[in-house]
Write a protein that binds this DNA or RNA. Structure first.
Length: 528
RNA sequence: GAGACCGUAGCUCAGUCGGUAGAGCACGGCACUUUUAAUGCUGGGGUCGUGGGUUCGAGUCCCACCGGUCUCACCA
């Protein structure tokens, strides 16, 4: 901001930055004409969506005084509007007086007549500005407008001769001058780096971007509403943890000066929510950011949004029903279409989703008996995995990820995981080697993960102490948290718990191939 | 962290065999009171990501670096 030129500097057509210079010249002229180029409060405007809804109020008044309804061009797309209008003979359009404000995204001028398309976040509308109609002062202002300027207009809502709904402007207001040249008016921004670094431009000028992020908002609002209706209570847990538990991921570290202690940014919400179950908060959730110091990919961002829900006296099966309800309600909130496009294919989110056990899917996709540890190890080695010194369940899960997960088109609940890789999950009564856990897979992506929560403090302590052979402590979900064990000793009710990756859910629901398409400001290396 | 590909005007993109940098949009000027990515005429706009090297000559070939995209690794 320190390099701003004075508004009085003249445009120089032969220097780099001449686009800005030309715009600053118009800014100077606006000031000269007595306008504030940075605008102020602008009341009583209608949104573009509202204006389009009012098109039905417009009438053509014939010379005789007879009012004629305007044909609905949506119902008659082939109508020759110009011809229809001529057939009505002499007369004039009459429509409501309206005010609107928005950014100029298109501009055409035809001598002493200008057409401006202005856009707000509900749509756009054409302004018709005629020199004779608006008078010299407004016309002089209109001559200072550029693409990208934010302007206000008041006038009559009516149709032009070609049938385009327009505001026939009577008064113009500059609300904010745009001094930087905008992206291509048609193509918007295409360079993925620019789209992320200058998200404001991507939102303002690239087709569909604002809509996608508004859909994300609808999904999040819908989730809160679904949970609220079922009596769940939203809480805010700490994001600074002294033990980064609840998941297996490398944490970001930070430091508190006064206490002189190192802290971690949370990698999961789990352990604090379960403490709340102990405290008698029977249905709780948190929807918030977690941080994992891992790689960046089309499906991973170092900070992402997680939903975790805990329901006392439930189990992982109640969480399956809840997951389906959350997804179904979110789809209803967007557009109600359960068969959703995904690239070249279509995902059918109609509940109920498929449910298959881990072992069933393992056998189906590998042809190997999941109980036959020797055969599983042999398969792992044939894929190229090193099996030496690894727990059989670790080997099995490596094979599962390699051979099964990518093939899960879904939506499908994978249920009943090997217990040894689930240190926070209750075991099945019928088989202690199996954990009551499911993950929801869609297009090979893990979207949700849920357990019947382990509430036995002694078993939990033991599992925290046990590092599975073949996993480093960093790779392990088992991190000793004495305070959490102490909480369990006071009695955590049997419960179901659920985690949903919100970014990935939004990706799937909005047909977005990269997580960066649904995160407003994904992590980027700083510019040089 | 490894590999492949990419970086040219404000934006979107061409650029052949190594031979003085191109288009559309945008921008300036002129014309036009019913346009729809308006149109017609006209003008200006470039440190080809950065720095080296090869060459008589580099946007183009080579090396390093910066940034991005994808794949892999990591994310049990």
């Amino acid at each position: 901001m320190t390099e701003t030129q004075s508004p009085s500097s003249s445009p120089t057509d032969d220097s780099p930055g001449f686009h800005e210079a030309a715009r600053r010249e118009k800014l100077r002229r606006m000031i000269e004409l007595g306008h504030d180029p940075w605008g102020s409060r602008y009341d009583d405007r209608s949104l573009m969506r509202e204006l389009r809804a009012r098109a039905g109020e417009i009438r053509f008044v014939q010379a005789s005084g007879k009012e004629v309804e305007i044909p609905d061009r949506a119902a008659e797309p082939d109508l020759d509007f110009r011809g229809w209008l001529q057939d009505q003979g002499k007369g004039e359009m009459r429509g409501p007086k309206v005010r609107a404000a928005g950014r100029i995204v298109l501009s055409r001028d035809a001598g002493k007549l200008r057409f401006l398309n202005i856009q707000d976040w509900t749509g756009n509308i054409q302004l018709l500005v005629g020199k004779a109609q608006v008078g010299e002062a407004n016309w002089a202002l209109a001559e200072c407008f550029d693409l990208g300027d934010i302007v206000g207009a008041s006038g009559m809502l009516a149709f032009t001769k070609t049938g385009e709904l327009s505001i026939f402007v009577e008064e113009l207001t500059i609300l904010t001058k745009c001094v930087a040249p905008p992206p291509d008016k048609h193509a918007g921004l295409a360079d993925p780096e620019l789209r992320q670094r200058m998200r404001y431009l991507d939102l303002a000028y690239t087709d569909g971007v604002r809509e996608r992020f508004l859909q994300r908002t609808k999904v999040v609002q819908s989730i809160r509403s679904t949970l609220g209706k079922q009596g769940f209570c939203e809480i805010e847990g700490p994001t600074l943890h002294s033990i980064a538990g609840g998941a297996a991921a490398r944490p970001f570290t930070t430091h508190h000066n006064t206490l002189d202690i190192d802290l971690f940014l949370r990698i999961a919400l789990e352990l604090h929510l379960k403490r709340l179950l102990v405290g008698g908060m029977e249905r709780v959730y948190e929807l918030g950011r977690v941080y994992r110091n891992e790689g960046i990919s089309p499906r991973h961002n170092p900070e992402f949004t997680m939903l975790e829900v805990y329901q006392a006296f439930g189990d992982y099966r109640s969480m399956m029903d809840l997951t389906e309800a959350i997804v179904a309600d979110a789809i209803e909130a967007i557009d109600g279409n359960f068969k959703r496009p995904w690239g070249e294919s279509v995902i059918d989110f109609s509940p109920p989703f498929d449910r298959k056990t881990y072992d069933e899917l393992f056998a189906e996709h590998t042809g190997v008996d999941p109980q036959d540890t020797a055969a599983v190890a042999k398969l792992a080695e044939s894929i190229g995995f090193d099996t030496a010194g690894k727990h059989p369940d670790v080997i099995k899960s490596e094979v599962f990820e390699e051979k099964v997960e990518d093939a899960l088109v879904g939506p499908i609940f994978v249920i009943d995981y090997p217990a040894s890789i689930c240190p926070l999950t209750k075991r099945k009564k019928s088989n202690p080697n199996v954990a009551e856990r499911f993950e929801l897979f869609v297009q090979g992506m893990e979207v949700a993960n849920a357990y019947t929560e382990l509430n036995d403090p002694d078993l939990q302590e033991q599992l925290f102490k046990t590092q599975l052979a073949g996993l480093s402590e960093e790779d392990s979900m088992a991190k000793m948290d004495h305070d959490f064990i102490r909480a369990l000793k006071h009695g955590m009710p049997p419960a179901g718990g659920l985690g949903i990756g919100i970014d990935r859910l939004v990706m799937l629901l909005t047909n977005s191939p990269s997580i960066r398409d649904v995160i407003l400001f994904p992590l980027l290396r700083p510019e040089a």
